[in-house]
Design a protein around this nucleic acid. Structure first.
Lengths: 226, 226
DNA sequence: CCGCCCCTACGTCATTTGTCGCACCCACCC
DNA sequence: GGGTGGGTGCGACAAATGACGTAGGGGCGG
């Protein structure tokens, strides 16, 4: 293994995404960019890990950068990132995600990602991030970085400020239940249920249970009803 | 292409997706396919609708096929599809979605979509579907079609029973707005807004606006707040 | 032209929802 | 022990919500 930063060297990329369209598109797009070349594809984390291991044992050159989606079947992007950086320290993983939540960003970076981009970012930024990663730098999407710092500084207006009981209440609210329903399910009085709902709204700075339901979904407290 | 209609004519495509990467990828990919050409992009439904209207007024040729994502901010794909096929009957909309739920498929087709594909489908199938749509045919992903026929027998309790205005109302409800808010935004009286909401709940057999919001998300009327 | 549907709007009513203050109990910790 | 925070409960009140009937005007197809 030799030093990295060589401007003349073509950056070898592996694309990991469960959408064939995205893979094919990234392949076609990077073809139009000098200095980048897609040398491998995988449809999920397991495939990616297996493919890299196979290449390693066969003595084939590994990619310099892995463009990794997060939401995939079988093995997700965070897990795959952790596995790859552990098994192949020379490979840099750049996350290319649809989501910009601080939660996922933190998880991905903790897993060893060398970058975090949003799919609605400027494609040029993807190229920049890939080059930066190949140089050993870390590139974060500006919007992501902004949101990340905001979460770090902004005091708790998130679900963590809720007590366990309140989260339980919010879960039921987010499933469309009325106060009477909630009270019955939790074997408490309807007044108490209302007290809890009111406290939840107050803590989250919302004005209606519907808004609370939407926030609960956004924060992942319950899966999107899709 | 010899069996196909007019080999000389290039099929003009507009790509609507909130992910710039996907747009650029599809552009680069279709570049490698003879007979297809991307002539426009939009990052959400509103942009797409606005762009088409602008072209129409300027007398510029409209695209033959719109490749439409479903999950987008501002205006989702279902709503945009309905608006486009109504305003531009000559334009065929092919939905390119991450999801294969019968709910969304039905909603999309009811909105006038000429095709429904999954993003993890074979890219060649996308090309086939685009060609088919340009010919006036309808192409459904096989996995999607199978799941769809199952639901066709079920009676209509879906969003299709709603009027356009009611869908508009439901969209705002699903964003957490109160009746007063909705009334202001639509420049109608709060009583009228309540009437609409009440009618929506009645038609959908629901008992609260929160349930309506959840259903709207499930049906793809608005993107999951995630 | 007539009927039908949609959007609009209002009145009225019952119910739900949300707020505020107060209170009790219990577990836990200082 | 005493304080603290969370869960529970109530009363009273204000506001929002939802149901029901009624009704005018506009558009559109029979």
């Amino acid at each position: 293994m030799r030093g990295d930063a060589d401007p003349d060297r073509v950056i070898r990329i592996m694309v990991v995404d469960d959408h064939a369209i995205v893979r094919r598109g990234l392949l076609a797009y990077t073809d139009t960019v000098a200095g980048l070349r897609v040398v491998g594809e995988a449809a999920d984390g397991q495939q990616a890990v297996a493919l890299l291991r196979q290449w390693e044992t066969l003595g084939e050159p590994l990619p310099d950068v892995v463009l990794m989606d997060l939401q995939m079947p079988r093995m997700g992007g965070v897990e795959a990132t952790a596995a790859i950086v552990r098994a192949h320290p020379g490979v840099r993983v750049v996350v290319l995600s649809s989501f910009g939540e601080a939660e996922r960003v933190h998880a991905a970076l903790a897993a060893g990602a060398a970058g975090y981009l949003l799919k609605d970012a400027d494609p040029d930024e993807v190229v920049m991030a890939v080059r930066a990663a190949a140089e050993g730098e870390v590139h974060l999407d500006s919007a992501v970085a902004r949101q990340l710092t905001r979460r770090m500084t902004a005091p708790n207006v998130g679900l963590t400020s809720l007590t366990a009981r309140e989260r339980e209440i919010l879960t039921l609210v987010a499933q469309g239940h009325a106060n009477r329903d909630i009270a019955d399910r939790l074997a408490i009085s309807e007044r108490t249920a209302r007290t809890h709902v009111s406290n939840v709204l107050s803590k989250l700075q919302l004005s209606s249970r519907t808004q609370a339901a939407l926030l609960a979904i956004r924060e992942g407290l319950i899966p999107p009803p899709a």
